[in-house]
């Protein structure tokens, strides 16, 4: 039995199509990432799978239960952490956890081993109200609350948004440990660099899945020549590169621009000469390996 099985799910909000005939499967004990920008349809997908929304067309099962017919069973079994921080700000850390433990028919003690690693960090603040926690701490508490009943499938909608890099890393390490406990995890994120933490990922944009594969395969399938460039005038550089006929695409990536080349007979040196003529200084060009983000850009083109 698959942990999650989705068949041609379609959903619209008026004229806006949020999900267009999405299909995919998540294996037991797999971390499956839904990677895409804001507004791509990630949250809608999560809500349909957690029985909060109904799809207009298509079917889906979670842990073998139909999302419409067996919604009560699903609600008993899964853990869900919404994208927005959704705990009680006026309750303390411990009160929040205790409340959700009771709502899920369990106690903190019973499944303490599951949350121990994270909760240890929260414990010094257990009498502090949730409103007084930092962003990272809030997400850790939310994760504890969604885990306290040892769910079979865990839904995490953008758990690392608004979280500092250290806490992000800790959260992902936590997910790896949960996977070893046999919990299947569906996680979404807008951060492309987190994709490689997943066993498999789906790249989503405008309600369409562009690709479903392991992060490694997706990167390996990238078949263009990819260079990273920087100069003293980054904005002009972007425009100059985009206007060059032999450059297929050019995107700004933090401190450098990534370009793909359309023909083989365009060499690094040719580009260097071209940019020198345009008056750029401190030019640095280096061939690089594609990242998930490069693949995403290529697929959306």
């Amino acid at each position: 039995m698959k942990a999650i099985s989705v068949n041609n799910i379609y959903r619209n909000y008026g004229d806006v199509e949020a999900l267009i005939d999405i299909s995919f499967e998540v294996e037991q004990g797999e971390i499956f990432g839904i990677i895409g920008p804001d507004g791509a349809g990630k949250t809608t997908l999560f809500r349909i799978l957690t029985t909060l929304l109904l799809a207009d067309k298509g079917s889906a099962t979670v842990d073998g239960c139909d999302v419409i017919k067996d919604f009560k069973l699903i609600r008993n079994r899964v853990g869900y952490m919404p994208g927005r921080f959704s705990l009680y700000l006026d309750l303390t850390v411990e009160e929040n956890l205790n409340f959700f433990a009771t709502v899920f028919n369990t106690t903190i003690e019973e499944n303490y081993y599951l949350i121990e690693d994270i909760y240890k960090q929260l414990e010094p603040f257990k009498d502090r109200r949730a409103s007084a926690l930092s962003g990272g701490m809030k997400q850790k508490l939310a994760l504890c609350c969604s885990l306290i009943h040892k769910p079979t499938v865990l839904f995490l909608d953008e758990p690392t948004t608004g979280v500092d890099p250290v806490s992000r890393k800790e959260l992902w390490e936590m997910l790896k440990k949960l996977k070893q406990q046999g919990i299947s995890i569906l996680v979404s994120t807008p951060y492309m660099d987190e994709a490689e933490m997943c066993d498999r990922i789906a790249l989503i944009q405008n309600g369409n899945f562009l690709k479903i594969d392991t992060p490694k395969n997706i990167v390996n399938q990238f078949d263009n020549i990819l260079w990273a460039l920087s100069s003293n005038r980054m904005y002009d550089l972007l425009n100059d590169l985009r206007n060059h006929p032999k450059i297929k695409s050019c995107y700004a990536f933090g401190d450098s621009h990534h370009i793909t080349i359309s023909t083989d007979n365009f060499l690094l040196n040719d580009l260097n000469i071209f940019l020198n003529e345009k008056g750029h200084k401190d030019i640095e060009i280096s061939p690089i390996k594609a990242s998930i983000e490069d693949c995403f850009m290529q697929l959306t083109n």
């Binding site: 899964v78 869900y80 919404p82 959704s86 705990l87 899920f104």
Partner: peptide, 13 residues
């Protein structure tokens, strides 16, 4: 509004 209803609905309660 706070989003807690989402969690409560996806619970055995």
């Amino acid at each position: 509004e706070m989003g807690t209803m989402e969690i409560l609905l996806v619970s055995p309660m």
